[in-house]
Amino acid sequence: MKKLCSILLIILLFTLTACKSEQDAVSTQQQQTATKETTSKQETSQTEIPKQVQKPLKVALIMQMSIGTFSSQYIEGVKKQIEQFGGSVQVYNSDNDLAKMAANLDAAINAKVDGILIDHGRSEALKQGVEKALQANIPVVAFDNDLRLPGVTVIDQDDYSLAWKSLKTLAEDLNGKGNIAVVWVGGFAPMEHRSVIIDAFYKRYPNIKEVARFGTASNNTALDTQAQVEALLKKYPKKGELNAIFAAWDEFAKGAVKALEQAGRTDIKVYGIDLSNEDLQLMQKSNSPWVATAATDPAEVGKVQVRFLYQKIAREHTPDIYSLEPHLVKKSNLPTENVAMEQLSKYINGWGNSKDAYSPWMNKLEKEKK
């Protein structure tokens, strides 16, 4: 009898275990099916073009000023990305007049555009207009601006990093000792950020002395800078009195380079910020004093800014602030033959390959609008 009971107990245990295993298998299969269905729905929703961006969108680009080749390549980047998305853009150039920039912003709002891009400018001049845009449900993305409003994404080139990369290279080339001049101008958010690093730079390298600081932003910035550097060279005519010039903007660097070339001062080197095709040509010239610059691809900046705007219009989450990764471009890294900006990725790791702010559906949108 005991033996029979034991046998029956074992059979019962096997039956219960088998049932439990079958239930677990069914449960696991159901979970896997549900997960696959959820993942499939998520993938579909991520690649499906949001209805808000399916129509051709009208975008306004409000610029504080449009000076030099950096700005022109930035504008081309904005235009190219918007055209790839099937939209159109109107560029408002404010000629470095903040009152005019505020008026241009109002004009864009009154034109009932679908989105607004802002290039430079100051918060005190634009805050009221941007708030008006947001109240009208017009999303805003700004570049190199000090706006800090909920819902507005502000992108920059990481101006602190730009300044440090260039200045650190200068210090290393001078072996931590020498006299330098700084070409800089206030009144612009990126310049104020770069100034913070300039001040910190002297604490890190106390044996590097600033003997002059100057700079103006105008419609002829490069020419103005050339004249200012020519006057500077008369103050320091002897080799060793001035070792380098740090130019906080490529328009400054272009003017400094031309002044040094005309004076035959190969003993003074230029370290800059920003880069364009014209800048590259100057750097690649034989015996060019322009030996290094820290930069992001201006066209890529424009494209990233547009993509953030389209994400906002599609009601996707976007950050309040975003910094693009800058690169150090040294003359010694470039080939002897001339290269253009679009070829720099062959020589500068990571250049021009940004997928920042790129949503999966954007690829489909670009293909459909071809």
Rank of each mutant, 00 (worst) to 15 (best):
N207E: 14
A253T: 09
D267Q: 12
L242D: 06
L233P: 09
R265S: 05
F214T: 05
Q262C: 00
E230I: 02
A248C: 07
K239I: 15
Y271I: 03
K238T: 15
R204C: 03
Y202T: 12
A222K: 01
Y271G: 03
R213W: 00
G240P: 12
T221M: 09
F246W: 14
R194S: 04
E230V: 00
Y202Q: 13
G215A: 02
F214S: 06
Q262S: 14
I198L: 13
L242N: 07
P206N: 12
A227E: 06
K258V: 01
N220V: 14
N220K: 15
D250E: 14
M191V: 00
V211Q: 04
L232A: 07
A200K: 12
A263C: 01
K269P: 03
R194M: 08
A248Q: 00
A200M: 09
R213T: 07
P206E: 12
A256S: 14
N219V: 11
A253F: 10
E230S: 15
F214L: 03
V196Y: 09
K238F: 12
G272R: 03
Q228V: 00
K235A: 14
S218E: 09
T221E: 08
R265V: 06
G272D: 14
S218A: 11
S195E: 12
A227I: 05
E230Q: 15
S218R: 04
K209G: 02
E210S: 11
Y202P: 01
D199H: 10
R204P: 02
E210Q: 14
K235T: 13
A263I: 00
Y205S: 10
Q262A: 15
K254G: 05
V257I: 14
Y236I: 13
V229N: 03
A259W: 03
E241H: 09
T225I: 13
S218T: 15
T225L: 06
K258R: 10
R204D: 15
G255M: 07
I245Q: 03
Y271F: 15
K239D: 14
H193L: 14
R213M: 01
L232R: 07
W249D: 14
V257T: 11
V257C: 04
A247F: 04
Y236R: 12
Q262W: 01
K254S: 11
A227N: 09
E251K: 08
L242W: 05
V257F: 03
Y205W: 13
R213A: 02
N207R: 08
Y271D: 02
A256P: 05
D199S: 13
R204N: 11
D224R: 04
K258L: 11
F201Y: 08
K234L: 13
E261G: 01
K203W: 04
K209C: 04
I197M: 08
E210K: 13
Y271V: 02
R194Y: 04
Y205Q: 06
T216K: 13
K269W: 04
L232G: 08
V229Y: 04
I198R: 10
E230C: 04
H193Y: 11
L242G: 05
A227C: 00
N219E: 14
I198S: 01
E261L: 07
L233W: 07
G264H: 06
P237Q: 08
A222E: 10
E230H: 06
V196C: 01
A248Y: 01
A200H: 07
G215E: 00
A256L: 07
K239V: 15
N220L: 10
K258E: 11
N220I: 13
R265L: 07
Q226L: 04
E210Y: 02
I273Y: 02
K235D: 13
